Amino acid sequence: MLAQIVLFDGFDPLDVVAPYEVLHAGGAAADGALTVELVTAEGPREVTAGIAPLSLRAVGRLDPARAGLVVVPGAAGRMPRGTGPADDGSVPAILARALDTGLPPLLKEAVDRTDVCVATVCGGSLLLAMAGLIGGRHAVTHHEGMDALASTGVRAVRARVVDDGDLVSAGGVTSGLDLGLHLLERELGPQPALFVERLFAHERRGVVWRAPA
């Protein structure tokens, strides 16, 4: 299985690196059953994180026809206060700029494909929601964005990880570790997930909420 982790300008680096390392280590432990790459809507390029001057290099283009798993991070920025317009450095503003690129149609293709699992960390679910792609689905985001997520028509669930079939989401930034471990166990079985959990000295925490069958 190929996992593609999406980068866009202003992404939160921990949202990317945590699941990347977990999935990469799990794939290696499972004899290469899962590989991971960083991608953008545009193809290979250097992508600036929301925490300057950090950047990561994408090696390819988001291609839901190739990927079995697509991971969407959130943004690193300020949370807006009050009801006034979001400033340019706020998380909603960064996500809005990401939607003004070639990313939305590729994300829509990923969401629409029954053979692709789309996973999100932190504000990644809000990015999908702002694009109108997950209305009526169950998802979680950072606790400060839960009301905004619910306002888009998403069924916001307060849990560490929310598994809604081919849509899996995780809450705050460190939950990317738990998301990666959950995906490993779901896709490759418990042994690779347990191996990585021990390797990283990380005990999974919080609740994995699963949508009713």
Rank of each mutant, 00 (worst) to 15 (best):
residue 1 M to I: 01
residue 2 L to V: 03
residue 2 L to N: 07
residue 3 A to Q: 02
residue 5 I to C: 09
residue 5 I to W: 03
residue 7 L to A: 01
residue 14 L to I: 05
residue 19 P to S: 03
residue 22 V to H: 01
residue 23 L to G: 02
residue 26 G to H: 02
residue 27 G to H: 04
residue 28 A to L: 13
residue 30 A to V: 02
residue 33 A to N: 07
residue 33 A to M: 04
residue 34 L to N: 00
residue 37 E to V: 01
residue 37 E to Y: 00
residue 37 E to C: 01
residue 38 L to D: 09
residue 40 T to H: 04
residue 41 A to P: 03
residue 42 E to Y: 14
residue 43 G to P: 12
residue 44 P to N: 07
residue 52 A to P: 15
residue 54 L to W: 14
residue 55 S to G: 14
residue 56 L to E: 11
residue 57 R to Q: 12
residue 58 A to H: 01
residue 58 A to E: 02
residue 60 G to S: 10
residue 63 D to M: 03
residue 66 R to I: 11
residue 72 V to P: 03
residue 74 G to Y: 05
residue 76 A to F: 11
residue 77 G to W: 02
residue 77 G to R: 03
residue 77 G to N: 01
residue 78 R to H: 09
residue 79 M to Q: 11
residue 79 M to Y: 12
residue 80 P to W: 05
residue 80 P to Y: 07
residue 80 P to H: 10
residue 81 R to D: 13
residue 85 P to H: 07
residue 89 G to C: 00
residue 90 S to K: 06
residue 91 V to P: 10
residue 91 V to N: 13
residue 94 I to W: 09
residue 96 A to N: 13
residue 96 A to M: 04
residue 96 A to H: 11
residue 98 A to F: 01
residue 100 D to K: 06
residue 102 G to C: 04
residue 102 G to Y: 07
residue 107 L to M: 01
residue 108 K to R: 15
residue 110 A to C: 05
residue 110 A to M: 05
residue 112 D to H: 13
residue 113 R to P: 06
residue 114 T to L: 08
residue 115 D to I: 09
residue 118 V to D: 11
residue 118 V to C: 07
residue 119 A to Q: 05
residue 120 T to W: 05
residue 120 T to F: 00
residue 120 T to M: 02
residue 121 V to K: 05
residue 121 V to N: 03
residue 123 G to H: 13
residue 125 S to A: 15
residue 125 S to R: 06
residue 130 M to R: 15
residue 130 M to F: 13
residue 131 A to Q: 08
residue 135 G to C: 04
residue 136 G to Y: 12
residue 136 G to L: 09
residue 137 R to V: 11
residue 140 V to Y: 03
residue 141 T to H: 14
residue 141 T to K: 11
residue 141 T to G: 14
residue 141 T to V: 09
residue 142 H to D: 08
residue 148 A to W: 11
residue 148 A to T: 15
residue 150 A to R: 14
residue 150 A to I: 14
residue 155 R to S: 12
residue 155 R to N: 15
residue 155 R to I: 15
residue 159 A to Y: 08
residue 159 A to H: 08
residue 160 R to I: 01
residue 160 R to T: 10
residue 162 V to Y: 09
residue 164 D to I: 05
residue 165 G to S: 12
residue 166 D to T: 15
residue 168 V to A: 07
residue 168 V to S: 05
residue 169 S to N: 02
residue 169 S to L: 10
residue 173 V to Y: 09
residue 173 V to A: 06
residue 174 T to A: 14
residue 174 T to L: 03
residue 174 T to Q: 07
residue 175 S to T: 14
residue 176 G to I: 09
residue 177 L to V: 15
residue 177 L to K: 12
residue 180 G to R: 03
residue 181 L to M: 13
residue 182 H to D: 07
residue 183 L to G: 07
residue 184 L to G: 11
residue 184 L to Q: 06
residue 185 E to G: 15
residue 186 R to I: 06
residue 186 R to T: 14
residue 187 E to C: 00
residue 188 L to D: 00
residue 189 G to M: 04
residue 189 G to A: 04
residue 189 G to S: 03
residue 192 P to N: 00
residue 193 A to F: 02
residue 194 L to T: 13
residue 196 V to R: 02
residue 197 E to N: 01
residue 198 R to W: 09
residue 198 R to Q: 11
residue 201 A to G: 00
residue 205 R to H: 07
residue 206 G to S: 11
residue 207 V to D: 08
residue 207 V to I: 04
residue 209 W to F: 06
residue 211 A to M: 06
residue 211 A to L: 06
residue 211 A to P: 05
residue 213 A to N: 04
